[in-house]
Design a protein around this nucleic acid. Structure first.
Lengths: 250, 250
DNA sequence: GAGTGGTCTAGACCACAGC
DNA sequence: CTGTGGTCTAGACCACTCA
């Protein structure tokens, strides 16, 4: 009685994924370019679409990187980006890892308005970017109700980065009381995709954060992290920098 | 001077995604079944593969649920599962939301062994499942070095759930000193897929947790959450139960 | 057995990067 | 320009669920 007689036949693309995945571990180095898709498909004796199904999953797992017009390369290990507990990512804090790009006033989407407790009232909306080694890893919309930045008159700074800095400066004066966070899977919209240098629809990790101060919600951040290159870390006060990626076994 | 003259033509599947997404918001209710793929493709005048590309992304965003042999239905909003800070998810704690399924001894994968600080030495490996409303939302492998459970002899319980309970009981006696966590995107392996009632390769959120006690790593958990149905929450001590899903705008 | 989504094929053309 | 990955087609068959 052989092991697992007559289990379902494994689909081709899944077998391909295993084979290529093992080849990546043993016969390729980070950054190396793979043969092109037509070549690979021919070599494995499958249609290009089938091969692509395998490559897609490997890319989803952060093991491959594909760029139109360029080719498919072996991806480096995911970079860990600190998202959690350390107080340094309070907006406006000295070590805040985000770069402000713009600021304007607008009525937030309903889901955000509910978290803020504001109604249809416009709030400050900051657009920010987070870089790692000069490459963008995330974009963010930071919603700040006027009530959180009392020292700022609505027409204080004309807009753009100047106002963004002013809002952040005021936020930094608040006394942080903690944060709420939610992480879920999403896909990049057109804007985010452009800023993250990915195609629209690429998988992203959506991090919604509620910043608490003075008994209420001081700001809400909706951040979009590249799921292919990022591993979000939630350190126990800076101790957890060393978590290595856990590779899936089938 | 029309707005955005001559920008790139939007791919069909992305336009489809928008159209169907809007229809989901306005003309369908949660749980309702959509027309089948051949019917939809014909209705929109595209090939089935193109339609499927749109459906795939909507499923990735948690807006659709597809089951072979059954059909495509409108998904309910994602369920928030508490993963973070609250001390109640320490393994073996009274309110631990996980259900033990099995226990055995094995040498952990290299990445886990490194976190544990054990070498090639075998550790306890507990298999657990996390349910929400009787549906599985996550599976877990919990690696516990023998040193963390001194009150347990290696052959104490013969294995299975009995030993799992014994290990957890011992773990619960430790004094928690904090946790490290990392979240990344992955795809379900064959085993996980079966337990989560999904197909292999489905997107999952991989949560690697290091439990700290007595100055070292008491255990390492590698948990696999269904990315389609789950939103991981990291509450500020139970305050953040109310975070609503933030829907992507394009 | 009928109907669903999942897999697969063998083509085609398009958009983009880089020379 | 050439070569890459991205999109798209019109079929086919398979695996699964349920009546």
């Amino acid at each position: 009685m052989g092991t697992r007689l007559h289990t379902v036949p494994e689909p081709k693309y899944r077998h391909l994924k295993t084979v290529i995945g093992e080849a990546l571990d043993h016969e390729f180095t980070v950054g190396e370019v793979l043969p092109n898709e037509r070549e690979l498909a021919a070599r494995f004796g499958v249609a290009r679409a089938t091969l692509r199904q395998a490559l897609e999953q490997l890319e989803l797992e952060g093991r491959l990187q594909r760029r139109r017009g360029v080719g498919t390369t072996v991806a480096p290990p995911r970079v860990g980006v600190e998202v959690g507990s350390s107080r340094e990512n309070w907006p406006g804090a000295p070590c805040d890892p985000w770069q402000a790009r713009d600021a304007h006033r607008a009525v937030p989407p309903a889901a955000v308005a509910e978290l803020l407790g504001t109604g249809e009232e416009p709030v400050h909306v900051l657009t920010r970017v987070r870089l790692d080694e000069a490459l963008p890893v995330a974009t963010e919309l930071l919603y700040v109700p006027a009530a959180s930045v009392p020292g700022l008159s609505a027409i204080d700074a004309p807009g753009g980065t100047a106002r963004a800095r002013a809002v952040l400066r005021e936020l930094g004066h608040l006394d942080p009381e903690g944060e709420d966070r939610a992480v879920e899977l999403g896909s990049a919209g057109a804007e985010d995709a452009r800023r993250l240098d990915r195609l629209p629809g690429s998988p992203v990790l959506l991090v919604t954060t509620r910043f608490l101060a003075e008994g209420g919600t001081a700001a809400v951040s909706v951040a979009t992290y590249r799921a292919d290159t990022c591993r979000l870390t939630f350190g126990a006060d800076g101790a957890g920098v060393e978590i290595a990626p856990a590779r899936r076994a089938s």
